[in-house]
Amino acid sequence: MNQSNENDPIVLAITGASGAIYGVRLLQILARSGVEIHLTISPSGAAVIQQELGLTIDLNEVDLACLLSYVPTWSTDSQATQPLTTLESMRSEIHYHRYNDFFTPIASGSFRTQAMVVCPCSGSTLSGIAHASASNLIQRAAEVHLKEHRRLVLVPRETPLSVMQLGNMQRVAAAGAVMLPASPGWYHGVESLDSLVDFVVSRILDQIGVDNSLIDRWGQT
């Protein structure tokens, strides 16, 4: 694996699998951490965000404040809402790229990044990455991370899985990617839906080297 600098940006892609809340929550936590983010969202990802979260996404000009300030109706997180000044500060570190734009920095291996996460990761996105047949920026950026031996984390949520999907997962894992299914644990003192979402987000952050204290870890007092 290539050495990356902790100051290098992180790429986040949101695709059309159920579980949009994982991607949006991950975006919020990364933004709060101060890391530079390169964000891209597929049309299907935007459709799922609208269906599951009730947020309408304009893929030509994404309203970052809408995503960063989103709080689910079921959330009990009293710290979730951000002041306007904080939102402006977080937005300044986020660069949005259109899904079909291959002329962005993240489409090139010469652009240094720390890691990439596809969350959630649809079956079609997984297939495109597994077979190196990029038809959009998300798949191309993922291929870049594999060929440059950088960290790539794919977060599928679909269940059950077909033999073909399992084969695609094995293929990308063998190429160096981390397969991290959105399967929250229940051993960390679950008290709300927030804690189940944060379990998955915390595990993603661990894989890309971003410190976090979203959950009580096993063995901690």
Rank of each mutant, 00 (worst) to 15 (best):
P160C: 04
S110N: 11
P156F: 02
T86N: 10
V35Y: 06
I57H: 00
V153R: 00
A17Y: 01
H145Q: 15
M164D: 13
E148D: 07
L87Y: 05
S192V: 08
W218L: 15
A174D: 12
E143D: 14
L26K: 01
Y22T: 00
A142C: 12
D216C: 09
F102S: 09
L12P: 00
G45F: 01
D198L: 10
D194S: 08
I49A: 01
A107T: 05
Q82D: 09
A20D: 00
Y99V: 06
S183G: 10
T125S: 10
L87F: 12
L180Y: 03
Q139H: 06
C121M: 06
D206C: 12
Y187F: 15
S78F: 14
L166F: 13
F102A: 11
I21Q: 01
V24N: 00
L26A: 02
M90I: 11
V11G: 05
Y22A: 00
T76P: 11
L152H: 06
D58L: 04
I204M: 11
L152V: 08
W218I: 13
A132G: 05
A132Q: 09
S202W: 14
P105A: 09
A141C: 10
Q207E: 13
V178Y: 03
A175I: 02
S183T: 15
T40I: 05
D63E: 11
L26D: 01
P181C: 11
E6G: 08
Q79F: 13
H97Q: 10
I204R: 07
L68Q: 06
T73E: 13
S78Q: 15
P156S: 09
A173E: 08
H145G: 04
P181A: 09
A115E: 05
D101F: 06
D77T: 14
I14C: 02
V144Y: 04
I37Q: 04
M179G: 02
L180C: 08
C66F: 07
Q139I: 10
I138N: 01
L27S: 01
V24P: 00
G219M: 13
A46T: 02
T113F: 06
L214D: 13
F102K: 04
Y187W: 15
R91F: 08
E93N: 15
G16H: 00
T15P: 00
G34N: 12
V201Q: 03
R112I: 06
V200W: 02
M116I: 13
L137S: 03
Q220I: 13
E52W: 10
H95P: 08
P43H: 04
V24H: 01
A80H: 10
E93D: 12
L146N: 05
M169Y: 06
S192N: 11
N100V: 05
S42P: 04
L68I: 15
L84I: 15
E6T: 14
T86Q: 13
E158N: 05
G45W: 00
S127L: 04
S69R: 14
I215S: 08
A115C: 12
S89H: 13
V178R: 02
T15Q: 01
R217H: 14
T15A: 01
Q50K: 15
E148P: 03
E93F: 11
G23C: 00
E143K: 10
A13P: 01
R32P: 10
G167S: 15
E61R: 07
N212A: 14
P43T: 06
I94F: 07
V71D: 14
A80N: 11
